[in-house]
Design a protein around this nucleic acid. Sequence first.
DNA 1: TAAAATTAGTTGAATATTCAACTAATTTGT
DNA 2: ACAAATTAGTTGAATATTCAACTAATTTTA
Lengths: 142, 142
Amino acid sequence: MEKGMPLTAVMARTSRLYRIRLNQKLSDHNIDLSSEMCGTLLELGKKEGRHQKELATTLFKDKGGITKLLKSLSKRAFIFAKADEIDKRHKKIYLTEKGHQVLKKAMPLVEEVRAQTLNGLDNVEIIQTREVLEKVISNLIE
Amino acid sequence: MEKGMPLTAVMARTSRLYRIRLNQKLSDHNIDLSSEMCGTLLELGKKEGRHQKELATTLFKDKGGITKLLKSLSKRAFIFAKADEIDKRHKKIYLTEKGHQVLKKAMPLVEEVRAQTLNGLDNVEIIQTREVLEKVISNLIE
DNA sequence: TAAAATTAGTTGAATATTCAACTAATTTGT
DNA sequence: ACAAATTAGTTGAATATTCAACTAATTTTA
């Protein structure tokens, strides 16, 4: 890797490579999910019926982005939405049975890629790296 | 930031935020460049006449991606291409006069955003973080 | 040297990102 | 109560990402 490359470029490259690896792993197992879709199902797996807005925040998507992502997942019949009866601006998002099934198949693959990603790193390195990235994030947020 | 969030998600978020900041800074100064286009001009500023393929490698784009990026820059008349007379498969890429001018305006803004990004980090942190990211990259490359 | 493999680049499709304009529902301020 | 502001979500446009199919030029190899 080039010495002068900015840290942000190294980060961008790393996250792109991670995404490629996970996409590949899922596709190798004939799972019709992108890594972003997969991340969304993982969040829904933790707790269903969450508001679309809350999912967007958790997944760091803007509101346009989450709309498109959920549309892809709906098209594949992995999720469905209900209006929140109390505040009709909100949509509550649920996994379908098919969504539960695909998530169950995807989870160990996500874990495999995560393990590959962190292979040979000790906890101290991981924690310190997170701390630096979080400092950078707070520098970049207003 | 959520404790359980994977390191790769933190990286993705960080590089997205960086890109947003730079896009914003450029647009605030009425510079018609995205952060990716800007990065491309910066590379060309170091050395012109480079092969498209070489630029792609340096910028971590695939060949489809670099084609589209260079097309955007051509449309704005910031670059032009010549066929390599020795190996006609290659295209050599150059900055136009307009490209040189916009690069000159953009450079200090890139430097501002870089400084903002790294504000409060010491060199040791930056170097260690790069090392961790490079380990992750080598884990993810085959 | 002719066929096969490789390399550089283009294009199109699907997804992803970012932003701005828009609608609809709810909350706030007076 | 009602106008104004806010909030959730959709849509469309431009850019960006990833991959696969394709062309054209060059190199390998048998």
